[in-house]
Nucleic acid binder design. Sequence first.
DNA 1: TATCAACACGAAACCGTTTTCGTTCGGTGT
DNA 2: ACACCGAACGAAAACGGTTTCGTGTTGATA
Lengths: 339, 339
Amino acid sequence: MKAKITLKDIARELEVSISTVSKALKNSEEISRDTKEKVQAFAKLYNYKPNNIAISLKNKRTKNIGVVIPAIVHHFFTTVIRGIEKYANARGYNVIVCLSEESFDKEVINMEMLANGSIDGFIMSLSSETQQKGDYNHLKEVTEQGIPVVLFDRITNEIDCDKVIIDDQMGAYVATKKLIEQGRKKIALITTDDYLSVSKARTEGYRKALLESELDIDESIILKLSTMEMDEERIRDFFDAQEVDAVLCVNEIFTVFSMRLVQKKGLKIPEDISFIGFTDGLLSKYANPSLTVVAQHGEKMGEISAQMLIDKVESEEEEESFHTKILEPTLVIRNSTIN
Amino acid sequence: MKAKITLKDIARELEVSISTVSKALKNSEEISRDTKEKVQAFAKLYNYKPNNIAISLKNKRTKNIGVVIPAIVHHFFTTVIRGIEKYANARGYNVIVCLSEESFDKEVINMEMLANGSIDGFIMSLSSETQQKGDYNHLKEVTEQGIPVVLFDRITNEIDCDKVIIDDQMGAYVATKKLIEQGRKKIALITTDDYLSVSKARTEGYRKALLESELDIDESIILKLSTMEMDEERIRDFFDAQEVDAVLCVNEIFTVFSMRLVQKKGLKIPEDISFIGFTDGLLSKYANPSLTVVAQHGEKMGEISAQMLIDKVESEEEEESFHTKILEPTLVIRNSTIN
DNA sequence: TATCAACACGAAACCGTTTTCGTTCGGTGT
DNA sequence: ACACCGAACGAAAACGGTTTCGTGTTGATA
């Protein structure tokens, strides 16, 4: 086991000072050609690599970014992480992933763990519990310390920081419009409670489309499930009680599960009933029939979030200007709607 | 913006030395009750938190672990990450995720980025390119430096380190046996090239089951796709050319895609043809029909990997003993096979 | 020959902790 | 009165770098 070599080791071995070694390795003009070559050769031979921690301590930059998300076993979030990782890596940053598991407390603990020097900035999407409580003090503390934060997807307006979202309202609006154009009259909405910023926006888009088309908004065919987890029972009850000819769901899982329920009842998709979901993941592609969905472009969101964060981290000036980037959702037409 | 406060700040303010502050905060016996109370009160008031980087530098422990995996948009890997994150967090560790995207070069670069002090150890699953090349020098270098490594799922025997896998051979064996018991005679296998350690083991299990049952091994109904990515064309051609009554696939996507192909040809699942896949993800649960699969227990694998790694990191002794933990796969019966 | 700039390098501070090893001071024992 | 002791605290080294600011040695110039 050969331990890593330090500047001090090189200096001792070559009988020069540590400063000389440091400068030589940086190709400083101060150092003679001879010495530089000697030092660099020696460093290469012994595979010298500077210690990241020491460098971080010196220039108060870790080149790490913290990503705090509610869940990872969700296609949307994994694509976002992928986008973040790709972009960050290209700029020499590493990504520390923390899972809040939809819990306020875990979100707070995670942020505290990272906020003491481990990272240069945060990229986050709020846990549902946090959005429900409306308590954002952990975010305030962090931003007040001067640590940059980028919020994506599940955001709040109570915090001044950069934000990246898709136009959820428009996504739902376009999807609902599509269903209406195809002659659907009783369009159900399966969503989660309104405290989730995205669900709220989607519900608004849904309502807006119905209003514009002078269709009634029937509250009894709007199903609000309490979390992002599946409450299979309630969905079952819902379809037992309601007769609808189209369904808009705020995620893939609700959609696929609902489709299977109505298929079991003998309905044909999309002839008898159409479905549109959110998130263009594997489920959508490989479901039977394949799903028409509102694509959220998670990878793009990740890239943009990472770019905004790193730009802010690396900008010297304390600019107090924050931007909200709104991406346009795309309707991906497949076979759960009439073509 | 209130910057974070340091020991030095507290010392200056309270007119004591830095050492006194440090000790007071640690409740050292050396410091008088009076001074301790003063210091602790002040620290609380100004929300003092020690700087992680400085501590890392001091005791050469970062409390970060590096996770290098080929992809994240795969249910299996996300569950592993979740297991790792959960366990690691509980022991006060953070998780840095790096994606090799199945590329050897990216794997090497990622490891080099992290191996210079950023992490205390690695948990990895090899990229397919790495397994194909059989070049493990980046792993050797890291282990020779004394950095602990735990390999999971896609492993190699050329590196001495802890390993966590499921018994892939047994998984495929049990699945194949199941199909045979149900009277299937022509059982196809859809896998990837043998350089992937897991695919190789699964192929062996498949062969073993056939041999034991005195069924012919028909090489023409073994389809080897070149990567983990989907080559839809070849699967299509395969099912056009072959008549089989059961299919074992090494992942969910192959399975679902194949099912849809044969369904389009008018075959009934599972009456005419049965399917078994690997990985118990969302696709399996929500496919139509739902999939019978070999569950890999990714979260458990993650937890165990994290435990092995952290135990090694925190053990003082330089024990050169490595263990391989083999988890038992579970056959989850659903509707793509006869019940 | 005294002066000076350029060159090549080293000393030391610094980042924020921890920890070892003094040091000071008042009190105790004899 | 003297040595000794323990309590309470501070100085300084150390972790591994970067960077500023000298400093000694040249050779050229006036």
